[in-house]
Nucleic acid binder design. Structure first.
Length: 419
DNA sequence: TCTGGGGTCCTAGGACCC
DNA sequence: TCTGGGGTCCTAGGACCC
């Protein structure tokens, strides 16, 4: 059995191009939330040397000079396109793991090689408009690596079956450790003094040394490079251990009220996610921070946590807890840049341990309210119905000045064809 | 003026138990 | 007078991924 890793090429840029063909052939970048920095680039933008994470404000002139198309990110579109790509592939294989918004591992029979990979590619392209690359190998780590090579080497035309390459070690010798899946700059810096520079070096390194330097993660990666599978296909998404919502503000925020409104809004989002997953959370943590990039403003970072008497997914309960925590860490005199919350200690709905000290609260009413709010907001758009503490002015809201339309998920934003 | 957000896994150390 | 060893659970922090 082998793994295939299918990865969408320049996914966000490709999604935008499906609905706006004028973007084809031009350099195109997609910005992070708040239009803060570059998080995705078309091939042409990469050619121009635009780096991942490049701050927008330092590059506006460059973008204009090179006629780079610049868009805010449109996650409603990317999420929906992702689901379509996955559904095209799912019937073609016996098992699939959706690994990220633009990647999936597939389980392949030994008979399935590059012909099959090309078939997947063609079908996804034809049915969704999204180009993908496919890497095939006996382990996930090698499949990742094969995928990168398939993408980077034009003559491979987007597919590479690593089980059939004549000299695998010669290929591994060209891959620096920092480009191996799971090894970043910090870990590769630990390997360098041991003379381990490339994937080939790591494959043949003394396992005890690798383990000493990188722990079990590193040992697993090294063994996978050698062709020994240590990571399984995970078909079912693991139950979430926590749900977070945190965002930077469009402008610096000083008042407690604005922080409260922002945090209440993020909390409402977390409540929606909990209910969508039929989960309850028992632990809430909240943090605030100032702008770490500012050399002149005084810095302040703080966080606080609490455990609820009873696990919940009710937005009103979560907001009350989150705002209490926020008030306990808020200090006057700072320019806040970001706040957010993280809920943990999750349990499935319907398996609640009642607190010893708490009477059963009037669940049906609260739950009914949240369900109706969820339905209305799904139908009419996010935040149509709000909790009072969220305010209505959104003075703190993130910038998103250049977003394309929600072509596939909102009737009012459907693409229009003129014939 | 302007630098993302949402996750996972592992490790070390302390508290506590028998 | 003497003061172990092995285990679990929790938390904080580090590193990574997309």
């Amino acid at each position: 059995m082998n793994f295939a890793l299918v990865d969408c090429n320049n996914f966000y840029a490709s999604c935008e191009r499906v609905f706006n063909p004028r973007l084809i052939g031009r350099p195109l970048v997609i910005l992070s939330n708040n239009d803060g920095c570059v998080i995705a680039r078309s091939e042409e933008a990469k050619q121009l040397g635009i780096k991942m994470g490049a701050p927008t404000f330092k590059n506006e002139t460059f973008f204009r000079q090179h006629q780079v198309a610049v868009l805010s990110s449109n996650y409603a579109l990317y999420g929906d396109m992702s689901a379509r790509v996955m559904e095209v592939m799912r019937p073609l294989v016996s098992a699939m793991e959706v690994y990220s918004i633009d990647e999936a591992f597939l389980s392949l029979d030994d008979a399935h090689g590059e012909d099959f990979a090309r078939e997947i590619r063609e079908r996804v392209r034809q049915w969704t408009g999204i180009p993908v690359s496919v890497g095939i190998a006996p382990t996930k780590t090698l499949a990742k690596l094969a995928n990168r090579l398939a993408k980077k080497t034009p003559q491979r035309q987007g597919v590479l079956d690593f089980t059939r390459v004549p000299d695998a070690d010669a290929i591994l010798a060209m891959v620096p450790c920092s480009e191996i899946w799971g090894i970043g700059t910090r870990l590769s810096a630990r390997l360098a003094p041991m003379g381990i520079q490339t994937a080939r070096d790591l494959k043949y390194a003394e396992m005890a040394n690798v383990r000493g330097a990188l722990g079990v993660i590193g040992e697993r990666i090294a063994r996978e490079l050698g062709g020994l599978p240590c990571l399984d296909l995970e078909e079912l998404p693991a139950t979430k251990k926590g749900i977070a919502s945190a965002k930077s503000f469009g402008h610096p925020v000083e008042t407690l009220q604005e922080l409260e409104e922002a945090l209440a809004s993020y909390t409402a989002r977390v409540g929606e996610k909990l209910r969508a997953g039929r989960l309850l959370a028992a632990h809430v943590s909240v943090f605030v921070e100032t702008n770490p990039f500012s050399a002149t403003q005084p810095q302040y970072n703080a966080g606080a946590q609490t455990t609820l008497l009873q696990p919940t997914n009710q937005t009103s309960v979560l907001i009350a807890a989150a705002l209490d925590l926020l008030r306990s860490i808020y200090r006057v005199g700072y320019q806040y840049k970001k706040t957010g919350l993280f809920v943990t200690a999750m349990s499935p709905e319907g398996a609640v341990q009642l607190s010893l000290f708490e009477e059963r609260e009037d669940k049906p009413v609260a739950q009914g309210l949240s369900v109706i709010v969820d339905q209305l907001n799904r139908k009419l758009g996010a935040n149509t119905v709000r909790y009072g503490s969220m305010g209505t002015r959104d003075t703190w809201a993130m910038r998103q000045n250049r977003r394309s339309r929600k072509f596939t998920t909102r009737w009012s934003e459907l693409p229009v064809a003129k014939a």
